[in-house]
């Protein structure tokens, strides 16, 4: 009964802002990079995120009974180019959490599986400029029956999601600007208990989860071997409620977060099958989330089935 805490919208803010923008061979649902036809690429990305301050509603605070909350994970990401304008990609994560103070035990387990179809219906060049439009659709669901009602140490929120995203990419020589917006339709989740209070008492184990929107603006250098981009991310929960003073966080809280970060990808000149990725981000504004600072690093390998 002692630890008050808070969650951060782990699954998507985390998975999207940190695991995204990985590599040319490991495009994500948020970048404007496409793989070529019959190209297959996969790899692992390790991520580390931690915070010692969080927003309890709009009140920023620390919690000596949590100390620093750290989430780590490894994500496996396969991608395949059906055509150079139509890619499919998936990801699956193993995640573990811990708190540096207090008595609460961290959790660990397989988190979510996501599958995306990425389609580039429009790509027009104007001299040194190129404009592309993308449409993406995806689905994600938990890979295990992990505990969602133990925030901030739960490894995810447990929703099944349907994600639709539109994206515009502008390239001038090697400088790109990419903007995208996504709507995340989230399923209800079930708890291990059969009653809960959000802003009123509910006699059910089922929690109505508000949908969410996600926005991203990214810009940088897109070279043959090096990609370097700065990112501005926003996750906005379309509904939900604030954590009341000193209360526990809850899956259907109104979790909002804005973060800035960088992502780098480098393809080895000596072996263009192999690329290394890395990046970092920090949260600059939030509500009912931890003020997370995160970094990630990974390695990807590309296969060319047909030339």
């Amino acid at each position: 009964m002692s630890v008050k805490s808070i969650f951060k919208p782990f699954r998507f803010v985390f998975a999207m802002t940190l695991f995204s923008a990985t590599a040319t061979h490991a495009q994500t649902e948020m970048d404007a990079i496409m793989m070529n036809k019959h190209q297959f690429c996969s790899g692992f990305d390790y991520m580390h995120s931690s915070w010692d301050r969080y927003w309890e509603g709009t009140l920023k605070r620390t919690n000596e009974n949590l100390g620093t909350v750290t989430t780590q994970g490894v994500m496996f990401m396969p991608n395949y180019g059906i055509t150079s304008n139509l890619n499919v990609m998936a990801s699956a994560s193993y995640v573990w959490t811990e708190a540096s103070a207090g008595t609460l035990k961290g959790m660990k387990g397989l988190q979510d599986l996501s599958v995306f179809v990425k389609w580039r219906p429009v790509a027009k060049s104007f001299g040194a400029n190129k404009l592309s439009l993308f449409v993406l659709g995806g689905y994600s669901a938990p890979l295990s029956n992990y505990v969602v009602d133990f925030l901030p140490l739960s490894i995810g929120l447990g929703t099944k999601n349907l994600i639709g995203r539109g994206m515009v990419d502008f390239l001038h020589k090697r400088i790109n600007v990419t903007a995208s917006a996504a709507y995340v339709r989230r399923s209800n989740v079930t708890l291990d208990r059969d009653t809960y209070y959000d802003t009123e008492l509910h006699q059910t184990n089922e929690v109505k989860m508000p949908d969410a929107a996600q926005y991203q603006l990214r810009a940088g250098y897109r070279g043959k071997y090096l990609l370097a981009e700065a990112l501005l991310n926003n996750w906005t929960t379309l509904g939900g409620f604030d954590i009341t003073r000193n209360n526990m966080p809850f899956p259907s809280n109104r979790m909002n977060a804005t973060s800035v970060g960088v992502q780098l990808k480098y393809t080895l000149k000596s072996n263009t099958h192999l690329s290394l990725i890395g990046g970092g981000s920090t949260t600059i504004a939030g509500r009912n989330v931890g003020q997370a600072t995160a970094f990630n690093a990974g390695v990807f390998y590309a296969f060319y089935f047909k030339k």
């Binding site: 009964m1 008050k4 505990v147 009602d149 133990f150 708890l191 291990d192 208990r193 059969d194 009653t195 809960y196 209070y197 008492l201 209360n247 526990m248 809850f250």
Partner: peptide, 11 residues
């Protein structure tokens, strides 16, 4: 544990 926890924010 969680079914019977009945801790903070519960009845």
């Amino acid at each position: 544990v969680h079914f019977w926890a009945d801790g903070v924010g519960t009845a």
